[in-house]
């Protein structure tokens, strides 16, 4: 992580090779095609230990697909993913979680058939067929405390369908946190949130970082992210167009072009 290549910074040319130790999570030359559509195009970047990285790009830029390839939901077409120095390309989703990389779903994927606290508890269940850790007792206590942590402490017994939009996001975070991750990929947490809600979720994410977590947070633009992130990677049409500190990014001509001079 000490040898982050500077050339890969603001110029956005991902040609300088990354090594497995350039960050907690290193993505090199990642490409994902769906039939003829290239959703992620030769993308390379690294996430450094304990930073909050903003992963930004317009609608359909390939942000979620990148996440999906990193977290084992889709196999990448080509490229390499390193997590903590190990080549984890193509590992399955649960293996990634068990090695410490958790994610949330942009479209929210709660289990509709159980309560909030039980949704979180599923993240606490060990990946073993026979375990003494029942869903009652201790597991229930821990699940409840995670719920309190993400601001659902007063809604433990509601079902996901009874939660408002922001509650569902908190539930996603709660389930991810229950897996005890080192790093969290948060897919578009701020879409659909009100100003105060954005503030409150940002606060939570910042707290998590202060406790040692590394975070990558997706958004369309930097508005909600500006005060939260340390660094940003901007992609368009699946390829990286800029990388650097938030202020630099805002001035970047290519980024401005990608947003057609629109709101960044």
């Amino acid at each position: 992580m000490s040898t982050e290549p500077d050339a890969a910074g603001a110029t956005g040319e991902g040609t300088v090779g990354y090594g497995p130790d350039d960050g907690v999570l290193v993505i090199e030359n990642l490409t994902k095609r769906f039939g003829g559509l290239t959703a992620v195009d030769d993308l390379s970047f690294a996430v450094r230990e304990r930073e909050i990285l903003g992963f930004i790009g317009p609608n359909g830029a390939g942000k979620s697909t990148t996440f999906n390839c990193v977290t084992g939901r889709y196999p990448p077409t080509s490229g390499t993913v390193w997590y903590r120095g190990e080549d984890v390309t193509g590992e399955s989703a649960h293996e990634m979680v068990n090695s410490g990389l958790a994610r949330t779903f942009q479209e929210f994927r709660p289990l509709h058939d159980r309560t909030v606290v039980e949704n979180v508890a599923i993240g606490l269940v060990p990946d073993r067929l026979f375990s003494l850790a029942g869903l009652r007792g201790e597991t229930g206590q821990r699940a409840a405390s995670i719920c309190r942590r993400v601001g659902l402490g007063d809604r433990l017994e509601l079902t996901p369908d009874e939660l408002p939009h922001a509650g569902l996001l908190r539930l996603e975070l709660g389930r991810a946190l229950a897996t005890d991750p080192d790093m969290l990929l948060v897919d578009e947490p701020f879409a659909g949130l009100s100003g105060p809600e954005v503030e409150s979720v940002s606060g939570l994410l910042r707290e998590l970082r202060d406790e040692g977590l590394t975070l990558a947070v997706v958004d369309h633009n930097m508005r909600g992210l500006l005060s939260l992130i340390d660094r940003a990677v901007v992609i368009n049409f699946g390829a990286k167009i800029a990388e650097g500190a938030p202020e630099e990014i805002r001035q970047d001509p290519e980024v401005q072009r990608a947003y057609l001079g629109g709101d960044l």
Partner: peptide, 15 residues
């Protein structure tokens, strides 16, 4: 949980 959503199960670290 598998009956409900397999991807969510995998995201909870379960195979």
């Amino acid at each position: 949980a598998i009956r409900e959503d397999e991807d969510a199960v995998a995201a909870a670290g379960l195979n």
